[in-house]
Amino acid sequence: MREPLVVAHRGASAALPEHTLAAYELALREGADGLECDVRLTRDGHLVCVHDRTVDRTSDGSGVVSESTLAELREFNYGTPDVPAELLTLDTLVELALSWTERPVKLFVETKHPVRFGSLVESKVLAALARFGISTPASAAHARAVVMSFSAAAVWRVRRSAPLLPTVLLGESARYLGGSAATTVGATAVGPSVKTLREHPDTVDKAAAAGRATYCWTVDDRADVELCRELGVGWVATNHPGRTKNWLAS
């Protein structure tokens, strides 16, 4: 069994402001195997990397992402007072991941639901990946992008439109992930929280028996990293990619 591969959750977000270019660049330098981001649509149809419905928590401004234009959202600072940062678009993050030459890096894109734009979010994500030539990989193993969601309907939309693209059905219930939902939507992996994994360690074996990988979030404690290694988790999302890589190497 190989070690779990390490995904930088919103970048190296324990060290630098989440979803900023600097946080992702640091994660790459620290050896991250994958980069995770959340995406939302602006009012004028741009995909931006923002977790919350609003930018209030992560910027010096205020406003609902879906009610604002990209230009309006770019007026705010998403970094620190000393080191300002611009709002990150999905296109810029894809460019960063694909330009990294030291090793292949996967991009894990999470679509948020419910949102006012509904299925348009997945359509826009797939169109963006297609522009970069990574929406139709030869196999899941060679994919440079993965689309994830807590919404089973969103995962189904991706599988239906891009059947070769890997998908992760996220959830906090082992019953939900191990039941008919993942099978019905054709998810290629399940994504339990680390709390769910602690309570239901058989989730990994059940997923493997159904031909699915396991992506676990958000794994920041050493004991949880070791648990994921022992259980055979494929991917661990962490706010500390460098530290997690070092733990797995020891």
Rank of each mutant, 00 (worst) to 15 (best):
W247V: 09
S151E: 09
L28D: 04
I134D: 03
E18Q: 15
G63Q: 12
N246T: 07
A152W: 06
L16H: 05
A181K: 11
R43G: 01
W217Y: 15
G234T: 14
S149K: 10
E230M: 01
R57Y: 04
V94Y: 06
G34Q: 12
A128L: 04
P81L: 04
A14M: 08
Y176W: 13
T92D: 13
P163C: 04
C228S: 03
E25P: 02
E122Q: 15
P104I: 10
P104W: 13
S139I: 06
G61K: 08
K245L: 01
T20S: 09
F76A: 14
A15L: 11
H113G: 00
S180W: 13
S59K: 12
T203H: 01
R229G: 04
A162F: 06
G171Y: 00
V204M: 07
E230I: 00
V50G: 02
S99M: 01
T89F: 01
G211I: 05
F132R: 15
S123N: 08
F117P: 00
H46T: 09
E72P: 00
F76P: 01
A97G: 05
V225A: 12
V147Q: 03
V125P: 03
S139G: 02
L120H: 12
V121G: 07
R2H: 07
V219E: 01
P84W: 09
T183C: 02
A207K: 02
H142T: 11
H200K: 08
A208T: 02
V105T: 07
S173D: 14
A153Q: 14
G211L: 08
L73Y: 09
S13R: 15
T184I: 02
E110V: 05
G242W: 15
P201G: 07
G133R: 03
R212P: 00
Y215N: 14
A141Q: 11
A130G: 05
A249T: 08
L164H: 10
H9E: 13
V168R: 07
V168T: 10
S119T: 10
V121F: 09
G232A: 05
S139P: 03
H200S: 15
V115L: 06
G61H: 06
V233G: 00
S193M: 11
V125M: 11
F108L: 09
G186N: 14
V121R: 12
V185W: 07
D33K: 13
L41Q: 02
A249H: 09
I134V: 12
R212S: 01
T92Y: 00
E67K: 10
Y215F: 15
A8S: 12
L120T: 10
